[in-house]
Computed example of a mutant assay.
Amino acid sequence: MEKLNASSEGYFILLGFSKWPQLEVILFAVILIFYLMTLIGNLFIIMLSYLDSCLHTPMYFFLSKLSFLDLCYTTSSIPQLLVNLWGPEKTISYAGCIVQLYFVLALGTTDCDLLMVMSYDRYAAVCKPLHYTVLMYPRLCQSLALASWISGFTNSALHSLFILWVPLCEHYQVDHLFCEVPALLKLSCVDTHINELTLKFTTSIFALIPLFLILTSYGVIARAALKMQSITKLQKVFGTYGSHLMVVSMFFFFIPALFIYLQPSTENSQEQGKFIALFYTIVTPSLNPLIYTLRNKDEVKRILNNLVRSIFSSK
C-alpha cells in the first residue's frame, strides 16, 4: 500500500462528528461558548494574579500557570475543531497535524504534573504552616512549574517522534476531533504494538503517579484538618482549598475515562472517546476559573474594588 507522508498526500481529514451532520451547528455554538468562557475566565485569573500584590503567593502563582496552561491547551485544538464543524472542509495539513498532536499531548501531560505540584503546595500550607515560606520559596515554585512543563514536552516529543517513524497507509481519514496518538496509530500499515505499549506505559506514569500523590496529599490534609479543634480553622481550610479539590475531582473523573479511551478500539469506544476528549478539552478548562472565583468570591470582589479604586484615583 502507498504510504502517507509529508511529501505525498500531505494532509489528513478529521472526521470528528461528521456521522451526525445535524449536530455540527449545535456543537459549534456550544464549543464556541465554552471556548470564549475559557479565554475570558483564565485571562481574568492571570490578570488578577499579576496586578494584585496580595496574590503574589505560591497558590496564585501556580493557579496563574494553570490558567495559562488551559489557555494554551484549548487553543491548540479548539480553533481547528470549530473550523471543521463550521464548513464542509475538514482537512488539516500533515505538518499541522503533527504540531497539534505534539502540543495537545505536551500540554495535557503538563496539566497533570502541575495539579500534582499544586496539591503539594496545599499540603505544605496546611500541614507545615510554620515552615511554609521556607518550603515553598519563590525559586522552588518556579523550578517545580518549569519541571512540569519540561516533563510534559519531553513525553510528547517521544511519542511525536514515534509517530513520524511509523509508516501510514493510503487511508488518511482520522476518526477523531483532532490529531492524537491513538487515532494516528490506527492509520498505520505496520504493527504498532510497541507504540501502544509505550503510550500506555507513559500514560500510567504521567497520570497514575500524579493521581496517587494528589490523593496522598489531600488524605494528609483531610486528616490534619479533622484534628483541628477550632471550627473556624476547619472551615477556613476547606473553604480556601475546596476550589483546588473540586478541580482535582474533575481530574479524577478523567483518569478512568482516559484508560477506556486507550483500550482496543470498537465503534462504540471510538465515539465515546470523542465525547471524552470534548469534555476534558473544553469543559474542564472553562470551569476551572469559575470554580476558583466562586469559591473565593469575597477575595475576588476585594481585589476588583481595589483595582477600580486605583484606576479612578490615578485619574
Score class of each variant (00 low, 15 high):
272 Q>E: 05
136 M>A: 01
23 L>A: 08
228 M>K: 13
296 N>E: 15
221 I>T: 00
268 N>C: 01
282 I>N: 08
77 S>T: 02
191 D>S: 05
211 L>T: 06
7 S>Q: 11
225 A>E: 15
189 C>P: 00
55 L>P: 11
16 G>L: 02
31 I>G: 06
185 L>G: 11
266 T>A: 12
129 P>Q: 09
137 Y>I: 00
296 N>P: 14
183 A>D: 06
69 L>G: 00
284 T>M: 00
221 I>N: 00
166 V>K: 06
299 E>H: 06
91 T>P: 01
258 L>V: 01
44 F>W: 11
218 Y>A: 07
151 S>M: 09
114 L>C: 00
176 H>G: 05
270 Q>W: 03
193 H>S: 14
255 I>D: 00
298 D>K: 10
277 A>C: 07
93 S>K: 01
231 I>Y: 05
51 L>S: 11
48 L>G: 01
192 T>V: 15
162 F>D: 14
165 W>F: 14
269 S>D: 08
203 T>N: 12
230 S>P: 04
202 T>V: 10
24 E>T: 10
96 G>E: 03
174 V>F: 06
239 G>Q: 11
13 I>G: 03
170 E>S: 13
70 D>V: 06
43 L>R: 02
42 N>C: 03
147 A>C: 07
153 F>P: 00
197 L>F: 10
73 Y>L: 13
80 Q>R: 12
132 Y>Q: 01
271 E>I: 10
